[in-house]
Structures are given as C-alpha cells and as structure tokens.
C-alpha cells in the first residue's frame, strides 16, 4: 500500500463491498482488489490522500468494523449526508476501479477488452431506407 494503513484498508474493503455488493456472476469490489486500486489512484493527489486517510480514520473511530452489516449500511447512509464530499469520492473511486476491471467488464456482457485496437463490428442498420420519406417531404431549409 502506498498511502493506506492496514486498518484503513480493512475498513475500505468492507465499505467498497457494501457500495457494490457481490451478485450472481458479478464479482465484489474486493474480489478484484479494489483497495489496491483506490490506494494507487489517491496516492498521486495530496487532497485525496488527506480526504481518505482522515475520512477512514473518522469512520474507524466510530467502531464501524464491529457493526453488523445492516448497521453498517445505516451508518453509511447517514454518513453520506453528513460527509458528502468524502463519500462522493469513495463512490467515484470504487466505481472507477470496478467498472474498468476486465473481469467486471466481461461479466456485464462485453468482451472485457478495451475499445482499441480491435473495436467492434457495427451493423450498418436497416433504417436508411426510411430516408426516402424524409426526402419526399422536400426542402425544409429556409432560403434567405
């Protein structure tokens, strides 16, 4: 870890898995090492380092880790309102890591590959033929 302590990491892991729960074939954030991803991405920005270290410490100070799951969710819902700035960053970084992970991208029905270099096959579409009707309406541009 570049920035987060062991306790910070444990707390963040639990929060991330509540933000995006495991479901069916979709992995949980911790299944794809989200904590390492978040640690890496915040470590380049002093503002984010402060926000995460102080925010996680604050949550840890409220015995978050020993709460039951339902209590943790209730806690986070309240925390979202009272600490909007930090919570928004928690969500953004969790989503960032999750929805750019090849395993997740494959699980949601895509190839799991980035857009390039292969691109995609795109059907040309059938409805160009409907343009005949548009043409038949005649000129709609205004001639000054």
């Amino acid at each position: 870890m570049k920035t987060l302590s062991k306790t910070n990491s444990d707390t963040l892991a639990v929060i991330a898995d509540l933000i995006i729960p495991r479901e069916g074939t979709l992995p949980s954030p911790t299944d794809i090492n989200i904590v390492e991803h978040i640690d890496d991405s915040i470590s380049r920005t002093p503002r984010l380092i402060r926000l995460f270290v102080e925010g996680l410490k604050d949550i840890e100070g409220k015995d978050f880790l020993i709460l039951k799951e339902k209590e943790q969710i209730d806690f986070l819902e309240k925390y979202e309102s009272s600490h909007n700035l930090f919570f928004n960053e928690l969500i953004r970084h969790t989503y960032n890591g999750y929805y750019t992970n090849p395993m997740v991208i494959k699980a949601i029905g895509m190839t799991g590959l980035p857009p390039q270099p292969t691109g995609y096959d795109l059907e040309q579409g059938e409805n160009f033929k409907l343009l005949e009707k548009v043409r038949d309406r005649g000129q709609i541009w205004r001639n000054p």
Binding site: L122, E123, Q124, G125, N127, F128, W141
Partner: peptide, 29 residues
C-alpha cells in the same frame, strides 16, 4: 449522405455515413 432536405445540395461525401446499428434503427423508428 447527400440529399438532406435540411440543406442546399452538397457534393458527394468522402465516405459513407456512420452506421446506425441496432440503436440507430430503434430511434429512427
């Protein structure tokens, strides 16, 4: 694609239009 009635006539475009795909077919309906 030339022939758009919302413009004066244009010269031939260099390449054919971007494909509609399934999504384009849906909205053009």
């Amino acid at each position: 694609l030339i022939g758009d009635p919302a413009y004066p006539p244009k010269t031939q475009r260099q390449t054919p239009p971007v494909g509609l795909g399934k999504l384009g077919d849906k909205i053009t309906h």
